[in-house]
Design a protein around this nucleic acid. Sequence first.
DNA 1: TCAACAGTTGAATATCTGTTCAACCATTTG
DNA 2: CAAATGGTTGAACAGATATTCAACTGTTGA
Lengths: 117, 117
Amino acid sequence: MEKQPHCECEVIHADVVQAVKQQLLGEETYMSLATLFKLFGDSTRVQILHALEQHELCVCDLAALLGMTKSAISHQLKSLRLARLVKYRRDGQNVYYSLADDHVKKIIDMGCEHISE
Amino acid sequence: MEKQPHCECEVIHADVVQAVKQQLLGEETYMSLATLFKLFGDSTRVQILHALEQHELCVCDLAALLGMTKSAISHQLKSLRLARLVKYRRDGQNVYYSLADDHVKKIIDMGCEHISE
DNA sequence: TCAACAGTTGAATATCTGTTCAACCATTTG
DNA sequence: CAAATGGTTGAACAGATATTCAACTGTTGA
């Protein structure tokens, strides 16, 4: 996660490197992107997201669906919630989760396309 | 990464769970998706990918651009190579890397859209 | 052939991350 | 109010992962 330690080599193509550097986004942007994609980088979480893509579900439903404990699911939902990938509503004892926006679907679809090439 | 340990709770909405289950993809598909997205889930790697989106670059260029050692960059490129996200060509002492297909760009763009909402 | 440099690799280390466990809060129902 | 159930939380542990380091390969040019 650290950056600028040092670079032991010479720049081979100074001009190209300079040009590309102009196009690069800020440090924090790459951090945010990584943080976002990290959430898709776990089979439990993608599965949760893909399930919620089909229908809103409560924690117990998800636990049953994935064969996992409510606790494990709840921990993962918390991460997804903090990243605003899912939203929730409480109805009685149940908390229903659903996707926060459709970027999630688009990203998963794009991933599916890539792996099925 | 493990699955079916047990679920301590009852299924609340058996019908919905059943319906969603039908729509779910295979276990291995979610694994593959997670493996793919995990590669985008590191700021060094997204930065490499985003840089290569602009122009093909050799390892030294990337090292200089990101302020990291050639070794660190090379290790990451290996992961990206194995996942067929980047391709490379050797020219003399230099090895030039570039994006393997345009899903990479689409996925990163989608990510940018999400974080800039 | 040898030196120099680009790049790769494997082992080691420090850090991060996912699940479990136990305790807890929230809501409903008797 | 008490019991039952859905859900959340924090600490702890095990497994994964990114960078470093040192050794190595491959290519060029003297």
